[in-house]
Amino acid sequence: MTARIEPIIGRYLHLELEGRDHRIYFEEAGDGIPLLCLHTAGSDARQFRALMSDEAITSHYRVIAFDMPWHGKSSPPAGWEREEYQLSTSSYTDMIMSFARALDLDQPVVMGCSIGGRIVLSLALEHAGELGALIGLQCGAYVQRYYDSSWLNRPDVHGGEVCAAIVSGLIAPQSPEEHRWETLWHYMQGGPGVFTGDLHFYQVEGDIRGRIGAIDTTQCPLFMLTGEYDYSCAPADTQAAAALIDGARVVIMKGLAHFPMSENPELFRTYLLPVLDEIRGASKA
């Protein structure tokens, strides 16, 4: 096997969020329209590594993904040891927009998955004028809590093992073993309580059903792509949200589940490329 270096570059950004210094790790590859990617709860930006090595994407898009604070190679803020991490709509929105402004991203396309798919709906409401387009993967307005997330962070259950085991069913049965287990590995590496803290936004605080009817897709196009095997955000959940939003475009992805970009990148690109081509075509017009 020949050694090779991937085109992905990683750097650290110091950014003030909610009045505190944060050290944020981000990766990028490609040139063109900024495509800011948001990872799922309890994971990190490595989920987008296949997109960043896909020339069909990077020849037209500057693909950027950051690890949220507490995730991946981004640190929790100083003093974290005395607090409980909990993501909220406002802290998540502030993080994304602050990051985009810090990097001077001009009209970025924002693509988020799961919690990232949810926050895309908030961005559509509050920041449509600053964004080129929005892509929600596994994007729904609400999820009913269906298991007790306190199991994810307690001393008599290994946190890495159980977080991976909880999400293992959110990968489609057909997805390649190599990608399935890499996706799970990211969950195994999450810090204690971080996945649970993200789920606070996803399952409790971030219910946005009552607001999404005001989204104006003529100001910022919204695409919603959902894998058929996802039960955390099932196709019916995406379709229910889209039914409230004029002009929202829905694609149900066969053979994929909750982690399309990392569980089966080869299949996912067949759904994503037409969307990216359409966004690029519209941006030229």
């Binding site: 269906y146 298991y147 909880i166 293992s168 069913g169 959110l170 489609a172 049965p173 058929e228 095997y229 996802d230 039960y231 099932a234």
Partner: peptide, 10 residues
């Protein structure tokens, strides 16, 4: 879909 994992059944 929905019958592929015990937590999907849950």
């Amino acid at each position: 879909p929905g019958y592929h994992d015990i937590f999907a059944l849950l």
